[in-house]
């Protein structure tokens, strides 16, 4: 495998890791506050549909993004009501949200667009288009030289190849997702809000007796989770793909949860876990590469299962211990 192919695979990994990363960080906020959220999948799916639909009508991807975030936050509020206000079972609420989103998106899509549960393809400004970073070789250079882009890149030096192929040329949401990692770390470990958020997931009684509202903190976390899931969903339908199709999240919400465990609920580890799982997904698209490198034909389904297998290995305690926040999944009931 040559250097350029490697870069191409990594480039695809980054694209595929982005929704995982956003969803994973979304789950991180929620679970760090003690609210388990298996409804990441559903929130992403709802956001994917509404952002694509609104982007199609408005012709503006950013307006679509807002709509997607709105849909996701609405579902997050439902989850918050069920699990914080009414102290219900968080798993059941999450499952319900997943089913609701799976059915509702297709139903509404069919009713609005009559294209079999999908939105019309998004074009132009209705999509998040790749950004060309300064000094990178991109489509504009190709147009100016009137030659294919791949040729230009193939002729460049390795550093320029690395820069142009892997670093440059992603949509703005990819860079946003990457910036969310240090931001989350900073928020959790360097601010008052973060201290309280982490505390409420470990021992809500400590937060409560310190005179801080457990309910408010958990809602804040669940809403942050909704926002990030919304961005993840919008990315799927208006950056990674051009439009919404039925069940387009394809289990990414669950892979993100697996990544969250793999990352032991830490933001920087979450980045590495999602990049790794993104790489698996990228290789799933290019089974020929694995065959070339290791000389064995690997079933692509095995690659699809790898994130889950690795998570089981982590959970079994083979690679350090994954200790979830102590108050995870427990509604807080004031007691003496």
């Amino acid at each position: 495998m040559d250097f350029l192919t490697l870069l191409q695979v990594l480039d695809t990994s980054v694209r595929l890791a982005t929704p995982l990363l956003l969803a994973c960080l979304a789950g991180l906020y929620s679970e760090r506050s003690g609210v388990v959220d298996i409804g990441l999948e559903g929130k992403m799916l709802a956001a994917a549909f509404f952002s694509a639909a609104v982007a199609f009508y408005s012709g503006n991807a950013w307006v679509g993004l807002l709509a997607g975030v709105g849909a996701s936050v609405a579902l997050a509020v439902v989850h918050g009501l069920a699990s914080i206000t009414f102290r219900g079972n968080q798993l059941i609420s999450g499952v319900a949200i997943n089913f609701l989103a799976a059915g509702m998106t297709v139903l509404v899509a069919q009713s609005w667009f009559r294209q079999g549960g999908r939105t019309p393809p998004l074009e132009g400004d209705a999509r998040f288009n790749p950004i060309e970073l300064p000094f990178a070789i991109g489509p504009t250079d190709a147009a100016a030289a009137d030659r294919p882009l791949s040729q230009l890149i193939a002729e460049a030096g390795p550093l320029q190849q690395f820069y142009s192929e892997l670093i440059s040329g992603h949509s703005s949401l990819v860079y946003l997702a990457l910036l969310t990692v240090p931001f989350t770390w900073w928020l959790l470990f360097r601010t008052r809000f973060g201290l309280r958020l982490r505390a409420v997931g470990e021992n809500p009684a400590a937060v409560d007796t310190a005179g801080v509202s457990v309910v408010w903190l958990r809602y804040a976390a669940v809403l942050l989770c909704g926002v990030l899931c919304g961005v993840a969903g919008a990315y799927l339908s208006s950056a990674l793909q051009a439009g919404f199709v039925k069940d387009m999240t394809a289990g990414r919400g669950f892979i993100a949860l697996a990544a969250l465990i793999f990352a032991k609920w830490r933001p920087v580890y979450a980045l590495w876990a999602c990049l790794l799982f993104g790489l698996f997904q990228a290789l799933e698209l290019r089974p020929d590469i694995i065959e070339n490198v290791i000389g064995l034909k690997v079933q692509v389904q095995l690659l699809g299962a790898l994130p889950y297998i690795l998570t089981v290995v982590i959970l079994a305690g083979f690679v350090g211990k994954a200790i979830p926040p102590k108050a995870s999944a427990e509604p807080y009931i004031k007691e003496r």
């Binding site: 470990f189 360097r190 601010t191 008052r192 809000f193 201290l195 309280r196 505390a199 400590a206 310190a210």
Partner: peptide
Amino acid sequence: ILGAEHGAMLN
């Protein structure tokens, strides 16, 4: 300091 922080930043 939990709940009795002096400001929004922890340091």
